[in-house]
């Protein structure tokens, strides 16, 4: 779908809004939620803003529901009822897609990827990360009102990548007919004095980006494939020369995959062959040259 044919962010239903702001702990989800809540209040609506604390602080998933309308009952937005989804991280933007209103829901996401350690558990040669595979182009194709931008890059260009949340807020701001100074006043209430200038700049940059998007002149940013450079799959085999091993335990203790052990005769043995990645740490560290790693390309004779 071409950018021209899309509904602009400002074309949502009049009146109240259901806005879902999502991201990863520490990105500033709550800050922009508070700004949105204040704007809703200024517009004379009843406002509810619901968030989850606790474990979320430790790099986990953070989400905040902002609802304003003449009357708001539920503190949370039902699936399929969000007028807007503002996502501060790419994989998080995909997690909440089913909250968006079909057809009219506006999707605004930073294309920044925060790859958690959890997505990098498979260390075998040729293995890939568990990080979400969907690309901005795919999402923009599937959702009528999708806007994906490199907000972190824009904020970094202004001097502080941490202001990416405010770039996205500025981007969403064109959806509400609210004077610029109201947004600035609201921002100033929640950002430290020293960070006001950068946040104003970030807000303006987001707004400018969205206006250009409305005009259909923004490109969908491309994201490089994650970890595409891995070589062909290799099969490793460990050869332990029992006659030379003196049972010093160094390889056992320092094996990153913890797949070695000493047997009853105090000789190193590979106990979990499937876990061995052939990283050669044992080979290099063995003081007695008792370990050799053999690698053959899979499929080779």
């Amino acid at each position: 779908m071409s950018a021209e044919a899309k509904r602009a962010p400002g074309a949502e239903t009049a009146g109240g809004r259901n806005i879902l702001v999502v991201g990863v702990g520490g990105q500033g989800v709550i800050m922009i939620s508070k700004v949105l809540a204040l704007i809703g209040q200024r517009r004379g609506f009843e406002v509810k803003q619901s968030e989850v604390h606790g474990m979320a602080k430790r790099g986990g998933i953070v989400f905040s529901h902002v609802r304003f309308a003449p009357k708001v009952w539920s503190p949370t937005i039902a699936k399929g009822e969000a007028d807007a989804l503002i996502a501060l991280e790419w994989a998080e933007s995909l997690r909440w897609l089913d909250f968006l209103k079909p057809e009219t829901g506006v999707f605004i996401a930073d294309t920044r990827r925060i790859v958690p350690p959890f997505a990098c558990l498979n260390r075998q040669q040729g293995a890939v990360t568990a990080y979400a595979k969907a690309t901005p182009a795919e999402v923009v194709e599937r959702i009528s009102n999708a806007y994906a931008l490199d907000a972190s890059g824009i904020a970094a260009g202004l001097g502080d990548a941490r202001a990416a949340n405010t770039v996205l807020l500025g981007c969403y701001s064109v959806a509400l007919d609210e004077p610029l100074e109201h947004w600035r006043e609201a921002l100033d209430l929640f950002v430290p004095k020293a960070a006001r200038a950068i946040n104003h700049a970030a807000f303006d940059a987001g707004r400018t980006w969205a206006e250009a998007a409305r005009a259909g002149t923004q490109e969908v940013p491309t994201m490089p494939a994650l970890f595409s450079a891995r070589g062909p799959a290799v099969k490793s085999e460990l050869e332990i020369n029992a006659a030379w091993c003196k049972g010093c335990d160094i390889c056992v203790k320092l094996c990153p995959e913890r797949c070695l052990a000493l047997d009853k005769k105090q000789i190193a043995v590979l106990t979990k062959p499937d876990a061995c990645t052939g990283c050669r740490v044992c080979e290099w560290l063995c003081p007695d040259f008792a370990i050799t790693v053999h690698q053959t390309a899979v499929g080779a004779a």
Partner: peptide
């Protein structure tokens, strides 16, 4: 019953909280 949502269930990863 609930109105039909986007049903855009995209394959995604878990993001458990981690030590800082």
């Amino acid at each position: 019953a609930a109105p039909v949502t986007l049903n855009e269930t995209v394959e995604n990863m878990a993001r458990p909280p981690v030590l800082c």
